[in-house]
């Protein structure tokens, strides 16, 4: 205990320094910037305004935001629809098989998502493999123009984010003890009732966590829209990026990013509430 003090102080200083300098301060800067005025030569001028927020509700931008959220939402639903049964089946596999198949889900989770977006482009382009397959099967006569569409963006987001849905769902299914289902059936509940009254509520934290992990990044992934969506299918990320890197309107970009952050915070709070409702916190372990 004694003699450790200098080490301890140094460690705490380092961590606090890093967090304050590279997390707290930058975020405060963005908040401040969103209330300032654009300036062509020095990015911003010190003139307080609410203009940037008013411009967010401009119908043009509102349309982009709405469309962006719509695409992200459809992606989330698709991931949930595909991922839920998948995670369930995965969690009920033989223990000898499970780690390997789980690993196969983690691989795309950790590989470069830009590369995977590009791989998707390769697959669905006019001369791509998918069109060739459909032509060979005789399901279509002329190649489909799938690229540069809303569907292509959703497909790309779905492909990249599906593991983010599966992993939290898998975690809750792993914790769901099969005896609970048996108990429910034993007490006379049918399959559907057992599902809605036992499985669904107990896996809800996973559903919400997975949905957040898909929905939140989805609206920001500008490169997916860039590579697959063309000029018309923009995400909020594209708007923020163009404000910062092309139009040089930092205050407006900051306001848009703050909108994104607030939306994130609200969703996270909802998640926190729902988890607390389901699982009561354990009692603290005793000290003595």
């Amino acid at each position: 205990m004694r003699g450790r003090e200098p080490f301890r102080i140094a460690v705490l200083l380092l961590i606090w320094g890093w967090i304050v300098l590279f997390v707290l301060l930058p975020n405060l800067l963005v908040v401040a910037t969103s209330f300032l005025t654009r300036d062509d030569s020095r990015f911003i001028s010190w003139q307080l305004t609410l203009d940037n927020y008013l411009r967010l509700v401009d119908p043009d931008y509102l349309g982009v935001f709405g469309h962006s959220f719509y695409m992200a939402l459809v992606t989330t639903l698709l991931c949930l629809l595909v991922g839920y049964p998948f995670a369930y089946l995965l969690s009920r596999l033989r223990p000898s098989l499970k780690p390997y198949l789980l690993f196969l889900v983690i691989v795309p989770f950790w590989t470069n998502s830009l590369v995977r977006t590009y791989a998707m482009k390769l697959l669905i382009s006019v001369n791509g493999l998918l069109n060739k397959l459909l032509l060979t099967l005789g399901w279509i006569d002329t190649p489909l123009r799938m690229l540069y569409s809303e569907g292509a963006v959703i497909a790309g987001l779905f492909y990249i984010l599906l593991p983010f849905m599966i992993l939290p769902l898998y975690a809750v299914f792993e914790q769901l003890r099969p005896e609970l289902l048996e108990a429910s059936r034993d007490l006379g509940a049918g399959r559907w009732r057992s599902f809605t009254r036992v499985v669904l509520p107990l896996t809800l934290p996973g559903i919400i966590a997975g949905s957040l992990l898909v929905l939140l990044p989805a609206v920001g992934m500008f490169y997916v829209a860039d590579v697959l969506g063309g000029a018309k299918n923009l995400l909020i990320g594209n708007v923020i990026k163009s404000q910062f890197l092309d139009a040089r309107d930092w205050p407006f970009g900051a306001a848009a990013s703050l909108l994104l952050t607030v939306a994130m915070a609200v969703l996270l709070y909802a998640y926190y509430l729902s988890v607390n409702m389901i699982r009561r916190p354990d009692n603290d372990a005793e000290l003595a």
């Binding site: 800067l29 963005v30 500008f222 994130m264």
Partner: peptide
């Protein structure tokens, strides 16, 4: 704060750091 870093969209982190560096 660590949780915020982990959960915030990359793009939000990106512009905040850009603002700091500038």
């Amino acid at each position: 704060m660590l949780f915020v870093v982990m959960m915030s969209p990359d793009i939000v982190l990106a512009i905040s750091l850009l603002a700091l560096f500038i």
